[in-house]
Simulated assay, not measured.
Amino acid sequence: MDHVTMPDPWAGAVQDIIAAGRRMDRFGWVPATAGNISRRLPDGRIAITRSGGHKGHLAEDGVIAVTLDGQAVQAGDRPSAETLLHCQLYAHSDAHAPEGRAPGGRAEEIGAVLHGHSVAATVLSMLPGEAILLTGYEVLKVFAGQDTHDTTVRVPVFDNDQDIARLSRVVAPHLGAMPAGYVIRGHGVYVWGRTMDVALARLEGLEFLLACELERRKLAP
């Protein structure tokens, strides 16, 4: 019998994160050392970008493993300060996906989380208001539960806070009701999906729509 080599989950997650970083960098969504990227592993650990590196130039050592509570698996590794926001999403998925249903009646598992800092997200989030409303766009259908352009998707905007644990407590009541992700004011977006490909599609969709909103406001009298 031929020997079958099973794929290495860690290596696959690392390559997914490296590829996502390069893709986000091409669009200018991870300037300097901004942003972070993670993917869930089958054993429950999380592969996530190391603190301080440029996400468009990641190598394998730029990705580390953390537990679901955000602690580095290997001594000496330093996770991003915002790792807790990734962990919060995975923990919510674990707690609610089997029973809870995403919009449209499907259970929403979270297998990847992306955080970027685009110009459009940063500028729009600095305007007054608790949310950015996206209405009438065909691309809204990229988000879970949306099957028509004739709808409005609300993207919550949370005030920035360097105390990430406190910020996570503000975000917590809204989990499960943010099909397009959310924005941290003056900071950037958080988007997630069942797989890295789904998360990237939602990120690109959200960033496209935010860019459209920014252009519309420039045209407004």
Rank of each mutant, 00 (worst) to 15 (best):
Q162C: 02
R45N: 07
A121Q: 13
P156W: 14
R154S: 08
L167I: 09
I46F: 01
R166D: 05
V123T: 15
V14T: 12
M126E: 14
Y182G: 06
R217T: 08
S80C: 14
P221A: 03
D8P: 08
Y182E: 11
I46Q: 05
A131S: 13
M178R: 14
V189M: 14
H3M: 14
N160I: 00
A20H: 12
D2Y: 11
S38G: 05
A91S: 01
S38M: 14
E60I: 10
L85W: 00
A165W: 04
A180H: 09
L133Y: 11
G111H: 03
I46S: 00
L84K: 01
A34F: 10
I46C: 04
I164S: 00
R22M: 10
V170D: 10
D69H: 02
I64T: 11
V139K: 08
I17R: 12
L214W: 02
G76Q: 09
P179R: 11
S125G: 14
T148Q: 08
G176T: 06
E109Q: 01
D61R: 15
P98E: 02
P103A: 03
D8L: 10
Y90R: 02
R23H: 13
E109D: 04
G188I: 09
E82H: 00
G188W: 05
D69C: 00
A97V: 03
T67I: 03
A32L: 14
D94L: 03
G44C: 02
T83W: 00
I37L: 15
L124H: 06
T49E: 10
N36W: 11
H92G: 01
G44L: 00
S80A: 12
E108P: 04
I110L: 01
D159W: 03
G116L: 08
I184P: 11
Q15A: 07
V139D: 15
M196T: 04
G145K: 01
L127W: 04
P79S: 05
E204Q: 07
H3P: 13
M6S: 12
H92A: 02
E207G: 09
A65G: 13
A91T: 01
H149F: 04
V63S: 14
P179L: 09
A97G: 03
A47L: 10
G129C: 15
E99I: 08
L140C: 08
G105M: 03
G129W: 08
E138G: 08
G205F: 03
A201M: 12
Q88R: 02
D77T: 06
E108N: 01
